[in-house]
Amino acid sequence: MLTISIHKPMLLRYSHVRIRSHQKFHKIDPIPFVKMEAKSSQTRKMEELSVKHPTPFIPKLEPSGEPDLQFDRLQTSDQDLVQEKKFEFGRFIAREAILDEELWTAAWLRAESHWEDRANDRFADSYKRKFSDQEFNAIKRRRKGEYGQKCSCIITVRKEPKNVKYTVVKSVVGTLDLSIRYLLDGETFPGEREKAPPFCSINRTQSNRYGYISNLCVSKAARCQGIASSMMHFAIRLALLEGAEQVYVHVHRKNKPAQELYRKMGFEMVEKATSQLEEEQTYLLRFKA
């Protein structure tokens, strides 16, 4: 180690004041000794290498199980679709959804319908996107089937004119869900046994098989063109082909247009209402083949 000692003699500082006749000399303390340590380059290198830098945390990213949605994807042409079960009416076609983009668009239509009366809400767009994402995942789960139930997402798409191609988002204008279910033991209509035990058996006889329609909605720009009634006719026909003898639907008591639509199609109100229906302010309607 090399030590260098620096000593500086005492200095006098001369200062002027207002009265020139007086002159003052201020004493300045001497600068203390400063020790400078010279380290070898090898020592500094060893110290630098000995410093431990914390390793940043890198989260483990799990690959997403959902395929990437292509919102600019073009609608599949009718010639490329191999579907026997479809219903053509006017400029539209009702059929079962196939593509994930069709399922997501159906979920978005339901979100818009759900928040239609609250369009001026400042958070409406955020709520609709969250609702549509949740509904999209719910549709995919329901389509896989559980407890012996079969669920289909029915959509209505525009017919493509010659030399015109629509994207999936602009093609889908209506949607509903059709479920094929069985009544529980002791039930005469869905939901009659409000406090059924968790492991209540399902009566899988043909007479207890029924269809249930839900989530019916039509794009605001495509209404008053018979889309809702045509989708309902198509869903009822599919339910009958699946062996269901009855088709049910719930409707809110204040939704008069929907009640009128169901009445014209042959649905009748189930007279015996449960306390849950009273609480939810809904009617249960039934269509008999």
Rank of each mutant, 00 (worst) to 15 (best):
T3F: 05
I4Y: 08
I4M: 05
S5Y: 15
I6P: 01
I6Y: 01
H7S: 10
K8A: 07
P9M: 04
L11R: 12
Y14W: 02
S15Y: 01
H16C: 09
H16Q: 04
V17N: 05
I19P: 01
H22R: 06
Q23T: 07
K24A: 04
F25H: 01
H26F: 13
K27A: 14
I28M: 10
D29F: 02
D29C: 11
P30H: 09
I31D: 12
P32Q: 08
P32R: 07
F33W: 05
F33C: 02
F33R: 02
V34G: 03
K35H: 14
K35P: 04
E37G: 03
S40Y: 10
S41E: 11
R44G: 02
M46D: 03
E47R: 14
E48W: 00
L49I: 08
L49M: 11
S50N: 11
V51N: 05
K52W: 08
H53P: 02
P54W: 05
T55R: 14
F57C: 04
F57P: 10
F57T: 08
I58H: 12
P59L: 11
P59R: 15
P59F: 14
L61K: 15
L61Y: 15
E62V: 09
G65A: 07
G65F: 06
D68G: 12
D68W: 01
L69N: 03
Q70L: 12
Q70N: 15
D72R: 13
R73E: 13
Q75E: 11
T76E: 01
S77I: 02
D78M: 01
D80V: 00
L81T: 02
Q83Y: 07
Q83M: 08
E84F: 09
K85M: 09
F87I: 03
F89I: 09
F89G: 06
F89E: 07
R91M: 13
I93C: 05
I93D: 00
